[in-house]
Each structure stands twice: as structure tokens, then as C-alpha cells.
Amino acid sequence: MQMSNRTLRNLVARVSLTAGSCAVVALILTGMTSGTAYASQATSKTPPYTLTLHAAQAPTSARDVILTATVSPQGKPASAAANQLAGIAVDFYVGAKQFTGQFDTAPLLLLGKAATGSNGVATLTYSPTWTGKQPLVAQIDSASGNTLASSSTTYSATAASLPFKGTVQSQRPDGTLGKWAAGILLTVLGLLWLVLFGTAVRVNLLLKATHHRYAR
């Protein structure tokens, strides 16, 4: 059967469209795979360290808590690898109160970072901003090149600090550049409104003028 040029063109167009659609899906799948790969990379490493977290009230202030995280190589005493335990970065977190008030589903807020000494111990002073039971988590910082290890504990705070010290200011363009930029933008905006209103009014006035001139 002989195929006309038109039919052939239609066929080519359809095949191109279908191929294009498939290419788009394939490209999105590639992006998806990359995301998945990175996500799994971040979670699949086996920690060679163990971490122990301890929280105790500071001797100097009833409001402060000393968080102590001890790093030790897995299955060995800390003394066996003393030189390797110095300088490991440890992150400390607290479980924040959430809408539901349930700590088990609360997001963890970063309190701060501390590096271990030669004995594998990292300490951080934490001042709770609310009283009561709060979950605490320590984690070896993966950004330092070491693999993840974490430990958690719970602390009951009896005293709390004020969350903010001093006055909190919202960001405003108070600087010279910000003021000028905002001023210029507001002027442009004003001019736009003027042109828009002006055009409508001008058209009406001109129509009125020509109407009186040519009304029959």
C-alpha cells in the first residue's frame, strides 16, 4: 500500500510527539533517581562509633544543663583509640513542643555543636526555655566526614531562661540603599497607577470632545 506524503507527515508528527513525551518522563525519572540516590547515600552508612549522651544540671546555675556526649569506637574501650577520638564534631538537639504537644513526634531543634577532646568527650551548656520533660539527642556530625551515630536521653528542667534577650527587630530596609530602593519602586508604582487612570480618563475626555463635535 502506498503511503501519501500527508499520512507520512502525520505519522512522523505523532511518533515525534510520543518520543518527546517519553523523553520528558525519562528525564524526570533521572532527576528522581538522583534525589533518591542522595537521600539513600545519607542514610546507608554503618556507624563505627558509639555515642553516649548524659545530661546534668550545671553546678553554677540551676537554669543551665551540661550535656556530655562520649564517643567511643564500637566494641573497643575509648583508651584503645584515644588519638582517633579527638576533634569529632557532635551536634546536640532538643525535641521542641509541637501543635499536638506530643514529644515523640516533635521536631528536633539544633542546640549547638561541640568537638570532642582526646578523651572522646564533647560538652555543651544548654539553657532550657521551658520547664518540664524534654528529649535530648546527640549526633556525630556527618559533615565532618564521620559516619552517623546518635544517642538520646530525657531531662526534666525545673527552671527556664527567657527565650529572647533584648529586643527582637524584624528586618526592614532601614539602610540608605533599602530606603532608596523602596522609594524608587513606590514612585514607579505611583506612575503606573497614574498612567492607567490617566489613559481611561483621557479616552473618555477625547470621546466626549469628539462626540460633541460630530454628534448628529
Binding site: L27, I28, T30, G31, M32, T33, S34, G35, T36, Y38, A39, Q41, A42
Partner: peptide, 22 residues
């Protein structure tokens, strides 16, 4: 958008791209 975020390698972006697509 998804490709660039997926390849950025930061945990926040990787996690967000993963959760959105898969």
C-alpha cells in the same frame, strides 16, 4: 527544578525531592 535540586547533594534538597517524587 527537580534535577538541579536532586543533584545538589544537600540533605534538605535530596530529602524533599525524594519525598515529592517517590
Amino acid at each position: 527544578e527537580y534535577l538541579v535540586d536532586g543533584y545538589s547533594g544537600t540533605i534538605g534538597n535530596a530529602s524533599w525531592v525524594y519525598q515529592t517524587i517517590l
